[in-house]
């Protein structure tokens, strides 16, 4: 690459310089090589604020090519304002195409959800991570946290699950359920709902986690063991909608969200909902 190309990039809307992308790709390779390990990286400031997908955006920009097709969702919705904003940034700065259909997308950036269907060997799932440290609830000191991960010393995590079950009768962890990856590192699963957790296990696709504010990248490579932390005799529970189904597409085997104080349920994955309706029609 010539100096001139660096100073005057052909793509005028470039959000990251080429050195930064290279650096991020290197961090991603390390993350894939050590599944679940939080790789520190020189997270750059993006045109979106910290906490608004700046980590996911950096990963997406580092992996996307002109011939990629991207899907961006927030809460499962392609039309959420932040999803729209991020998609617009990615497509205008890279020349990649966009889609709302997961099966058509080569890169899917998401906040808080995994699409209900369509991810395969060809897909890369990029999850935006607000808090990459799964142990922060039991330990605040970063020196100690580093030690706990290094020694796979997760007993305090288990104690917190024990206490939870004793006090509340159930494990009350809601989203971002802690999982053991490749029988080695405990990771924070962004906050995706528990509903999505089983689909990370032995998945055909690569999942990349980007925490821009905390400057960490980690990964679950395809076909990797992902086990939610739970006791042998306490089954892991996904969100229970009590047999409800989507008011629009009638699905009952998708993650549903409801209106306040009502029995009206809707799919959180809006594109899945749309396609199910079209198939029903």
């Amino acid at each position: 690459m010539l100096l001139d190309d660096l100073i005057n990039p052909t793509q005028s809307d470039e959000l990251l310089d080429e050195f930064a992308k290279r650096e991020i790709r290197r961090a991603m390779l390390a993350a894939v090589a050590i599944p679940g390990y939080q790789v520190p990286f020189g997270s750059r400031e993006m045109p979106v604020a910290r906490g608004w997908g700046s980590g996911g955006l950096q990963i997406t920009l580092a992996v996307v090519h002109d011939d990629d097709v991207v899907k961006v969702i927030d809460q499962g919705d392609d039309d959420g304002v932040n999803a729209v904003n991020l998609r617009r940034l990615v497509t205008t700065s890279t020349g990649a195409d966009q889609t709302s259909v997961a099966a058509e997308a080569s890169v899917i950036q998401s906040r808080h959800r995994i699409p209900e269907d369509g991810l395969d060997e060809e897909s890369i799932l990029v999850l935006q991570v607000p808090v990459p440290e799964p142990l922060r609830g039991v330990e605040r000191d970063m020196r100690e946290l580093a030690r706990m991960h290094a020694e796979a010393d997760y007993s305090r995590m288990w104690v917190s699950l024990y206490e939870d079950k004793v006090r509340n009768g159930v494990i009350t962890q809601t989203t971002g359920y802690p999982c053991l990856v490749n029988e080695r590192y405990v990771v924070a699963t962004t906050p995706i709902p528990r509903w999505d957790i089983p689909r990370l296990h032995e998945s055909p696709f690569l999942t990349l986690f980007g925490a821009g504010r905390e400057k960490r990248i980690y990964a679950i490579p395809p076909r990797t063991k992902v086990e939610p932390l739970t006791f042998d005799d306490v089954p892991f529970e996904v969100e229970d909608a009590d047999g409800a189904s989507c008011a629009m597409c009638k699905s009952s085997d998708a993650f549903l969200v409801s209106l306040p104080n009502s029995d009206v349920w809707m799919c959180s994955d809006t594109d899945w909902c749309r396609r199910t309706r079209e198939a029903n029609a």
């Binding site: 997760y154 007993s155 288990w158 004793v166 005799d233």
Partner: peptide, 26 residues
């Protein structure tokens, strides 16, 4: 001991550190 944890939870700590994963057994 960790004073903000139950008596049972305090004992669960060395047990889980030693690999115990069955709630009933703990």
């Amino acid at each position: 001991l960790k004073l903000n944890i139950s008596a049972g939870g305090n004992i669960a700590e060395p047990l889980t550190a030693a690999g115990w994963r069955n709630f009933g057994n703990i």
